[in-house]
């Protein structure tokens, strides 16, 4: 096979490039592969954060916490401070829903974390449950589900302590 880039020399290197979501597979000769090595592919933002730029309306008030404006958000794909989540709440919620498919937090809260051992046990049970269901071992799955419920009931569904 000839090199995909120069079409002159015999290809000897299988080259995989990932640019964002796109994967490109190339066969290159040693020379072209060496040149390619020097020039990294264009860095691509994560799928989520390029989303910040979309869906954002026109100019509005700046965040009182840090001075960030909608334009800054669009440019940086980053919020400026914790208060930005309040300032830009109405803009952020649909975007969070689209990306995470959830808008509210479940899990650890500061100072109220479940003991690590219990967390690990829950994780193990959930994993076992997934596997049991996949293997159609429904009796085992039922047992695991019961134990999981018991454990989760000990401190409410969110694993949280006081909120």
């Amino acid at each position: 096979m000839k090199c995909h880039r120069c079409s002159l020399r015999e290809a000897s290197v299988h080259w995989l490039e990932m640019i964002g979501d796109q994967r490109r597979s190339l066969w290159l000769c040693a020379d072209c592969a060496a040149t390619r090595e020097q020039t990294p592919a264009v860095p691509a933002g994560e799928p989520l954060v390029s989303f910040l730029g979309q869906g954002l309306g026109g100019a509005g008030a700046a965040c009182p916490g840090c001075g960030t404006t909608i334009d800054d958000l669009r440019r940086d794909n980053r919020l400026g401070c914790a208060r930005c989540y309040v300032t830009f709440r109405s803009t952020m919620l649909p975007l969070l829903a689209r990306f995470h498919r959830h808008i509210s937090h479940v899990g650890k809260v500061p100072g109220g974390s479940p003991p690590t051992t219990r967390l690990a046990e829950i994780t193990r049970l959930r994993l076992g449950l997934t596997k049991a269901v996949a293997a159609e071992e429904f009796e085992r799955a039922a047992t695991l589900r019961d134990r999981l419920r018991e454990l989760e009931d000990q401190s409410g569904p969110n694993d949280g302590g006081p909120r």
């Binding site: 989520l48 954060v49 794909n77 401070c81 479940v106």
Partner: peptide, 18 residues
């Protein structure tokens, strides 16, 4: 930086929550 609603707050909204 933590809110009841969105959990641990991060510079990128892609990391918010846990």
């Amino acid at each position: 930086a933590f809110s009841q609603e969105q959990g641990y707050l991060t510079a990128s909204p892609g990391n918010v929550g846990t």
